[in-house]
Structures are given as structure tokens and as C-alpha cells.
């Protein structure tokens, strides 16, 4: 029996690794290409590992483009929209989790339904409103929009986390004589923080990669990395090595964050329907 199980494990392991590497391959290939010279990048047959490793593409992207500015824009927009969103979502989720009323369920579902509103349905008015308000091509405009589009997800995620904090613990704290402020500091915050952290993480990722509003509402200077890469394609599309370096620079921070948050991802994106 042990032998059969052992052999199965080896077969499954081999198969899983082959398939996983296949799925991961485009990223791996981009990473490798980013270290090649432009000539090696388009060589046929392709060079996999044996080429002259160089960092010149990164240097060039760094010097010749506004990578840093777009990186800063991405950070400001994703972090800004998420933090403001959390400031609005935490009290709302809190209220619904701990003082539920008969309409709580309806409110939650309604909030979710706003997330399903297709962006194109409101593209025209948002564009015109932004134009009038001078928000077009501004970071604050994008912060606002991304905060609004992710707000339902934040409320939902936080709600599912908060609901798991047992009411009896809060009641115990009240019996033990904790004032509301102390209850918050000693009991609520430590228990709610993990949920808030994973909500923050997932929504930063979503905002970082959002590429409908970021492409439609910004031009060159205020665009985040999504727009940077999109504009990169036009003049430099055929410079594969440089494109790869720029791509790696655009996705690396968030892919790493994603690895850290993959456990919470499922629950966040399914609104708690799958845990």
C-alpha cells in the first residue's frame, strides 16, 4: 500500500510541477527576456538560459522613461483609494456586523449590486463630470473613482471578518468594565486587525491593476503603471527586452503582495461565499 501511495505522489508531483510551470511560463519568459539584449530577445531559436545576462534594459527604462513618476502615481492611487475606502467601509461594516437590523441584508446586497454596474454604463457621464470639475487626468479623480468601485468589496470583506468576532466576547468586555474606548483598544482592534489588513492588501492589488478608469481618465503625466505600460507599447513595442524590463518593474511589487495575500483572496473575491 505504502509503495502505491508513494508512486502516486511522485506522479502527481511531476504533473503538478509541469502544469504549474506552464502556467507561470509567460512570466518567467518575461523575466528572462528582461535580462537579454534586444538582439537576443528576438533570436530564433529562442535563448532560454545561455545568453549574456545584462541589466542594461532596467537601466534604460529607469533613465529614459518616467517609470518613477508612474510608480509613484500607482502607489498614491492604489493606497489612497484603499485607505479612504477603508475609512468609510470600516464603520459601515462594523455597524452591519454588530447592530444588524432587518434591512442589513438588503443594504449589503444593494452595495454588491453597485459593484456589478458595468463601467461603460457610466463612462460618458463620469468623463464629462470629471472634465467639468477639472478632475480629468488627475490623481485625486482616480483615487475617488477607484475608492467608489472598490467600496462594496471592502464593506463585504470587512463584514465577513467582523461577523466572525463573537458578540459574547464584546459582552464579556462590557461586563468586565471596559469603556468603549478601551473595548476598542484592547479587544476589538486586536481581533479586527487581521481582517482589515487582508482587506487592505486585496484592494490595493485590485486598484493597482485596474485598467478601465486608469486608461480612460488619465493622460501621460498622472497615469499609473497600467497607463505607463499601455503607452509604452506604441513607440517601443518591438523592443522586447526593454518592454520586459518595464513590465517586470510594473508588476513585481504587486505580484509579491499577491503571493502574501492569496489565502484571503478567495474569500475576498467571492464575498465570503467560499472560504
Amino acid at each position: 500500500m505504502a509503495g502505491r501511495h508513494g508512486r502516486n505522489k511522485l506522479v502527481f508531483t511531476a504533473l503538478a510541477w509541469v502544469l504549474a510551470l506552464l502556467v507561470f511560463f509567460p512570466l518567467l519568459w518575461t523575466l528572462l527576456t528582461s535580462f537579454k539584449t534586444e538582439g537576443e530577445a528576438v533570436a530564433i531559436p529562442p535563448k532560454f538560459l545561455f545568453f549574456d545576462w545584462t541589466l542594461e534594459n532596467y537601466a534604460e527604462v529607469w533613465e529614459r522613461t518616467d517609470y518613477l513618476r508612474h510608480l509613484r502615481n500607482s502607489i498614491i492611487i492604489s493606497l489612497g483609494s484603499t485607505l479612504i475606502g477603508l475609512a468609510v467601509a470600516i464603520p459601515a461594516a462594523w455597524a452591519m456586523a454588530f447592530s444588524p437590523t432587518r434591512s442589513t441584508r438588503t443594504v449589503l446586497l444593494w452595495m454588491l449590486s453597485t459593484r456589478m454596474l458595468p463601467a461603460v454604463g457610466v463612462l460618458v457621464p463620469v468623463y464629462l463630470l470629471f472634465k467639468q470639475a477639472g478632475l480629468l487626468d488627475s490623481r485625486s479623480g482616480l483615487v475617488l473613482i477607484l475608492m467608489l468601485t472598490n467600496l462594496p468589496i471592502m464593506v463585504w470583506m470587512l463584514y465577513t471578518y467582523f461577523r466572525e468576532i463573537p458578540r459574547e466576547i464584546l459582552e464579556a468586555a462590557r461586563m468586565d468594565g471596559a469603556t468603549p474606548l478601551r473595548e476598542l483598544a484592547y479587544v476589538l482592534a486586536p481581533m479586527a486587525l487581521p481582517g482589515i489588513a487582508s482587506t487592505l492588501l486585496l484592494n490595493v492589488i485590485l486598484a493597482w491593476n485596474e485598467s478601465f478608469w486608469t486608461l480612460n481618465l488619465t493622460a501621460a503625466s498622472t497615469g499609473p503603471l497600467t497607463a505607463f505600460i499601455a503607452s509604452f507599447s506604441a513607440p517601443e513595442g518591438l523592443f522586447y527586452a526593454r518592454l520586459s524590463a518595464a513590465s517586470m518593474l510594473a508588476i513585481a511589487p504587486i505580484v509579491v503582495l499577491g503571493w502574501l495575500s492569496q489565502k484571503q483572496l478567495v474569500r475576498g473575491l467571492t464575498f465570503g461565499a467560499v472560504k
Binding site: P166, M175, D176
Partner: peptide, 25 residues
């Protein structure tokens, strides 16, 4: 003082801190 059905212990605190909590409050 109340003892709850689920015990309602503070999960992030040690036993010592749990017992001490009302006194510290």
C-alpha cells in the same frame, strides 16, 4: 460577573491577561 456559554475568552490574550482583564479595567 458572567460566565458565557462560549466562554468568550479574549483569543489574543494569554490566560493570565484574560483573568487580569477586569482588574486592569
Amino acid at each position: 460577573s458572567m460566565v458565557f456559554q462560549s466562554y468568550a475568552l479574549y483569543p489574543h490574550m494569554s490566560v493570565r491577561d484574560n483573568i487580569a482583564f477586569p482588574l486592569r479595567m
